[in-house]
Write a protein that binds this DNA or RNA. Structure first.
Ligand SMILES: [Zn+2]
Ligand SMILES: [Zn+2]
Ligand SMILES: [Zn+2]
Ligand SMILES: [Zn+2]
Lengths: 154, 154
DNA sequence: GTAGAATTGCAATATTATAACCTAAGGGTA
DNA sequence: TACCCTTAGGTTATAATATTGCAATTCTAC
């Protein structure tokens, strides 16, 4: 996770991609869905569903659990957000649009989560399919430790 | 997951290993901890904490959530049980005693979970550490699809 | 035996997620 | 436009998972 990136650009780019994906698929990026995606990107770290609720409320949106879970389900389905189950949290996808195996490295110090390069995950899946005789359809990889910045600081 | 294994042996062997690990570490395999581990192995599929409660109650144990969560925490710490966070469930460890990266393949058809060979997971972790400049301390890999039996059946 | 530590019992509560049911809004078609 | 149908959102309640806090007990070391 780079510390010095243009974060406004991050968000704008993610919103733009989501809009395009919706148009391609005939899906509707409604105000609440759009706002949830913005909040997830503004946060830029894994964020829990219940942390989103007050932020939605502050914007005048309805803020009951089903509202945010529905929006999250939509965004997950669209492929612009991932769920990190070991944290019960959600984060924006780096490479939305491309269907790809998902995994994250989460720094236990700073909390930042970096999406893992799909290349390695695909390779692992192939090796496991060959060795176990299974067919893998989906998966998630959640690793934890110190990111390079936090390692340097320590 | 082999369908034709001596399941009684599975359980006995797991209990024996747990006992030895406790002796080595000066930890206490108390009745409720022992029973929780037995129940997990008897089930032989990922099992939720709240599924264990009534089974404990049937044996005359206290059966409030903290009881089972404490036992699970102890067994996780001891390394004889793993948590599968995408299922909010627990399962016995294949290679207890050896500290190893953990991952599972879970068949979406039959529900069986197979622990992934550590070799591949270690290799992935090393590749990611090199590429991302991070240091990985723990991780979990949860894959889903069809196991070889269910593939054949389908 | 006694002090200190670990374990358990117990009640309450926190956190995360979904169900059920109804209303409102969009979108195509005659 | 009027109609119908589908999707999305509002609202209330509840389910499912997990933890906190404190008192009582049991174990262990001395
Ligand atoms: Zn992604
Ligand atoms: Zn960090
Ligand atoms: Zn294991
Ligand atoms: Zn199967």
């Amino acid at each position: 996770m780079s510390q010095h990136h243009d974060h406004g650009h991050c968000i704008a780019s993610a919103m733009d991609t989501a809009k395009k994906l919706c148009e391609q698929q005939g899906a509707r990026l409604t105000p609440v869905r759009r706002r949830v995606l913005e909040l997830i990107w503004q946060n830029h770290k894994p964020i829990g569903a219940y942390e989103l609720l007050p932020q939605l409320a502050a914007d005048g949106f309805n803020s009951a659990p089903p509202t945010v879970y529905r929006a999250l389900d939509f965004l997950l389905e669209l492929g612009v957000v991932h769920r990190i189950s070991s944290l019960n949290a959600f984060i924006g996808c780096d490479q939305p649009g491309l269907s790809h195996p998902t995994g994250f490295f989460i720094c236990k110090e700073c909390g930042n989560a970096t999406e893992l390069p799909a290349k390695h995950l695909t390779k692992l899946a192939q090796a496991l399919e060959a060795e176990l005789g299974v067919s893998i359809e989906s998966g998630s990889h959640e690793l934890s430790g110190l990111c390079s910045s936090c390692r340097t600081a320590a």
